[in-house]
Design a binder for these strands. Structure first.
Lengths: 144, 144
DNA sequence: TATTGTTATACTCTATAACTATA
DNA sequence: TATAGTTATAGAGTATAACAATA
């Protein structure tokens, strides 16, 4: 079947990027099912666990999501008791999203699950190649 | 705002992959708007231009799409006169998708547009780095 | 008047199952 | 009975506009 592999499509970086990402996303979401998270909601939870105390606005900008999507993600995490919304006293329009203790514990479990998923997705690469890939991707991903 | 960049999320390969892909997909689709194509439909068109004469089943497997999605993509391309469905005489259940002359011309234009989009997406990389990225991604993307 | 978060809506994408015609 | 393609449908994901509270 894979005679189509010879085509020029298989050389287009954007095609390879899309396919690698599809694998990574599928593995990641599958690994997070038992933790009632998805890759999207994990990203919000992970940021809420950091010391930066991000607002929803900042989450939307950093994750390149529409603010209305962040609402839905935070709603879900809050309903699970993993994060809390606290209104910033300096500007009472903005709501800061912080993880609860349960949220921090869940985040650790999720990170471990995602690490395991990554070992599957990137199993064909050596550790050095994996680091090189991360560096190249960082350059592409964070280039504004 | 980008103080969130310090977080551990920014080091997760799957996060970087997702973000790089989002950029690539957005740029690619934007570049294809004038040609009435999307990255998805371009992939089908490109394969229909090759000498392999793929069936819809093969397209679905190679592109990791559900057969019903391939139907919709081929419908769109066919409505534009870019591809034709011909029933395989050896097995009259299977339909082979081949590009028309107009389709081949459109594919060339689309490839040029996507190449240009890629120069933007991957502008932070040297040619050698770009090749290295493609090789690493190929390993990840095509590893079954 | 502008901004943060929210709600509502619609549009695309994706996944599933049932149907047809062929084998 | 099984397979290729098709149709229908529902669920995610995504984008947009309008609204409330605050600045």
């Amino acid at each position: 079947m894979e005679r189509l592999l010879d085509g020029s499509l298989s050389e287009a970086p954007s095609f390879l990027l899309a396919r690698a990402n599809a694998r990574s996303l599928a593995q990641g979401n599958a690994a997070l099912v038992p933790l009632k998270l998805k890759v999207r909601s994990y990203a919000v939870l992970a940021l809420a666990c950091g010391p930066e105390r991000p607002s929803q606005k900042e989450l939307a900008q950093f994750l390149r999501l529409d603010p209305s999507q962040v609402v839905a993600l935070v709603d879900d995490l809050e309903a699970q008791g993993l994060v809390e919304r606290t209104t910033d006293q300096a500007d009472r329009r903005t709501k800061v999203v912080v993880a609860t203790d349960i949220g921090r514990e869940r985040e650790r479990e999720a990170r471990a699950a995602l690490d395991e998923a990554d070992t599957i997705v990137f199993r064909s690469l050596t550790a050095a190649e994996r680091a090189a890939l991360a560096a190249l991707l960082r350059s592409v991903a964070l280039d504004d």
